[in-house]
Simulated scan of single mutants.
Amino acid sequence: MKEVKIETTLQVYDSISNLPEDVQQLMNSAIEARNNAYSPYSKFDVGAAILLDNGKVISGSNQENASYPSGLCAERTAIYYAGATYPKAKMLKMALTASSQNQQTLKPIPPCGACRQAIAEYEIKQDNPIEIYFMGVKGKVVKSKSLANLLPLVFESSVL
């Protein structure tokens, strides 16, 4: 047997105000998107904003449905719209923010597993990492230079 150790490196900022100006603007777009979330069941609002290499910012929010599996997370709402609308553009940065209507979300909330897989697909497709910044409703912001830091053993099409 051989043991394999996987390490990841993330950067943590104390608040939005400590982020580079362009990322602050992107996170503010994610906050605006979060305010448009439709989450009557989970009461958990999520907003995402993606900066494309053509300068466009695409945002999305989670959209729930009484038939739970039919809803869609904010990250996938934004990434699929970006992919469908600007198929040749590269996704450079993604900002995520989440808030609960039941309690304060003060710790950074990363993308769920399904969203990580969707982001991985686009990183692989564009052969370029996507910087991911995530936070709760306020407080610390975590930066990952690539989805590979959040999902190191990615499932990809080369195995199909």
Rank of each mutant, 00 (worst) to 15 (best):
K138N: 13
Q11M: 11
K107Y: 14
E7C: 08
G55A: 09
R34H: 06
Q63F: 00
P69F: 04
E32N: 05
K43L: 14
C73Y: 03
A98Q: 12
L51F: 05
V4G: 03
G136T: 10
Q104C: 00
L72R: 07
A49K: 07
A74D: 07
E21Q: 10
I16F: 05
I79T: 06
Q103M: 10
L51C: 02
V141S: 01
V4R: 05
D14C: 11
F44N: 07
N62S: 06
L51R: 08
V12E: 10
A74G: 11
Y81I: 13
N28V: 04
S15Y: 06
D127R: 14
Y13V: 04
I50L: 06
C115K: 08
P108V: 11
K107L: 15
G83C: 05
Y41A: 09
L26C: 07
E75A: 11
I130W: 01
E7T: 12
S29K: 15
A118C: 10
S15C: 03
S59R: 09
G55Y: 07
K90R: 13
N36C: 00
G47H: 00
L72W: 00
Q25A: 09
K5F: 11
T8R: 14
K125Y: 11
A118D: 09
I124F: 12
Y41H: 15
I16E: 09
N35C: 01
E121Y: 15
P87W: 04
Y38T: 14
K56N: 10
R34V: 08
P87L: 03
P69S: 14
D22R: 14
E3N: 15
D53S: 13
Y133Q: 11
D22C: 05
P69V: 11
I130C: 08
